[in-house]
């Protein structure tokens, strides 16, 4: 009963967010996110109608899941783009380190697959699609962590819209990673609790998105300095030299 109520409320919230995006015009700013939400609404509504027929239900579910994961990656990139749009330096930092993380992760996965020692337990992927989904969510989570690190490190101000997107997706991805693992580890003992946890988290995510995306929010952009911009390499190099010298003296003082 509870899960059906959550399901229905979720459908209503998704429809409300989509409708509101048409009024506020936010769908033009976050096209990937609203496409993602539209697909979630269509698949959830479809599953609602075929819920009593197991085979069409599971077919619906497993067709929609890869689409959602793929679009989920698009949403992550959209968040990164909007969070760092006014900060090309930070955006470059995130992009380059993102590619590095991506390369390392997939090299590690390929190597472990070739060696048949997959630390992410991908080997039984053909009969554990949930594990595969969790693995994709893990990579998504790592990218979200990377965005969060760049935002914290460079003291970037996020607007209400982007912040809501980041928090909503982050919380949902985080719980999506942890709950299947609990289910695998503790077997079916707490099956209902895990399922409800994920549903409640998704509802919370929708609430965050509804509040954050109800209206358009502008972010004040700090002014940039043209002269310092031109001399970035010089400035960075000189700061590094000064710090290196200072550090060596301090180290000598401490070690003696």
């Amino acid at each position: 009963m509870l899960s059906k109520t959550i399901w229905l409320v979720g459908l209503l919230l998704e429809a409300a967010i989509l409708m509101q995006s048409l009024r506020s015009g936010l769908f033009r700013r976050f096209p990937v996110f609203y496409t993602y939400l539209f697909c979630v609404l269509v698949s959830s509504a479809g599953m609602w109608f075929v819920q009593k027929e197991p085979w069409p239900y599971f077919l619906f579910y497993w067709i929609s899941q890869p689409v959602m994961i793929f679009l989920g990656y698009g949403v992550v990139l959209e968040i990164m783009h909007h969070a760092l749009i006014h900060y090309p330096g930070a955006e470059r930092f995130a992009r380059v380190s993102g590619f590095l993380v991506f390369a390392i992760l997939f090299s590690a996965l390929a190597a472990s697959w070739l060696l048949a020692r997959n630390p992410f337990a991908l080997d039984p992927w053909y009969n554990h699609l949930e594990v595969l989904e969790r693995d994709f969510r893990m990579v998504q989570a790592i990218f979200l962590v990377l965005i969060a690190i760049v935002v914290i490190y460079y003291r970037i101000e996020l607007g209400k819209n982007v912040q809501g997107l980041l928090f909503g997706l982050g919380i949902y991805v985080s719980v999506s990673i942890m709950s299947p693992e609990l289910r695998l580890y503790f077997d079916t003992k707490f099956e209902t609790a895990y399922r409800e946890l994920q549903s409640v988290t998704y509802l919370a995510t929708l609430c965050i998105w509804a509040v954050a995306l109800w209206s358009t929010a502008e972010v004040p952009v700090p002014p940039r300095s043209a002269a310092i911009e031109a001399d970035y390499e010089r400035m960075a190099e000189r700061i590094r030299d000064r710090l290196r010298s200072a550090r060596s003296y301090l180290r000598k003082a401490v070690s003696e």
Binding site: Y87, V96, S97, Y153, P222, S225
Partner: peptide, 16 residues
């Protein structure tokens, strides 16, 4: 430094 470098289009990951 961070306040300035976040705007640099020519930012180098290694330098940072």
């Amino acid at each position: 430094h961070l306040g300035q470098s976040r705007f640099q289009e020519g930012l180098s990951l290694r330098t940072e």
